[in-house]
Design a binder for these strands. Structure first.
Lengths: 151, 151
DNA sequence: ATCCTTGCAAAGCATTTGCAGTCAC
DNA sequence: GTGACTGCAAATGCTTTGCAAGGAT
């Protein structure tokens, strides 16, 4: 646990200093919160939680910190979906489920098979593929309209 | 060609009247423009083009028309990606390529194999999947940094 | 000591809304 | 004639920016 905290701080310090940026309490708190949750929070939600630790932090700083983390590849910005952007503290290749009922975004374990990507890529003439994002939409266990119905 | 125009108008009239909504010149122009392009335009781009046909149309009306079309399942709203939403006149199941250079969104022929979706879905415990969106990111032929390089 | 960061308030966009006049049915 | 739609302008919501004061190296 203690080790976790140290690793997190070390990771952040290293990534920031590598690009001439500074380690600050605010950035650390935002980073720690992102790492601690699987809820893919919006900037506002991050602000709300981090404020309990650093009451004086401003929303603008939260936005700046989040962009800094994304720039340092320590977080991902999820811009699909309506409305406000969501941030994800995971940076490994993974996908998402989006509940059409409660709008929650849930991590989906597993990756798209490379052969499947290659097959699709074959239709993308002259396009050089570097990444793949997949989102399954539907209804989570709590929002399922009815166990058997299908829209 | 003539038939195409008739079909388009008929399709729109039918879809609108089915929900007690009215056929208007503005909605028709927006619909026609969406059908005529593969460029996945933003609301602003639709506004720009439709204005050449109906100079008096307002941006608000374009937004309202686009939402009406989406609601009637005659268009799709593409909300992944930063910034403004893009609209797609195609409603069949298909996916997209997003160029990280010029930000263009290009249609990707082909679908994700059902078995692949089923495999991923298996990890989504209790989640009822109704749709699948996939986006390959990379560089289009015009933006490719260099033929062989890979980031 | 340098110059990056913060917090505040104001600005910037994309999108939505309220409402009176207009139009499709 | 009735209720839906348009156009305008103002409002909203998320995000970014400019700048002086403060903080990390």
């Amino acid at each position: 646990m203690q080790t976790d905290t140290h690793d997190t701080e070390r990771t952040l310090r290293d990534a920031l200093s590598a690009t001439g940026q500074r380690y600050t309490e605010q950035r650390a708190a935002v980073f720690r919160y992102l790492r601690s949750t699987e809820s893919h929070p919006t900037a506002d939600e991050v602000f709300f939680h981090v404020r309990q630790e650093i009451p004086g932090i401003s929303l603008a700083t939260v936005y700046k910190s989040l962009e800094t983390l994304v720039g340092a590849r320590l977080a991902t910005k999820l811009t699909y979906g309506d409305g406000s952007a969501r941030y994800d503290g995971r940076t490994d290749d993974h996908h998402h489920l989006r509940c059409l009922g409660c709008e929650r975004v849930i991590d989906l374990p597993g990756q798209v098979d490379d052969r499947e990507v290659a097959r699709l890529e074959a239709s993308a003439d002259g396009f050089q593929v570097t990444g793949c994002r997949l989102e399954l939409t539907g209804y989570c266990a709590d929002c399922s309209p009815s166990p058997a119905s299908r829209v």
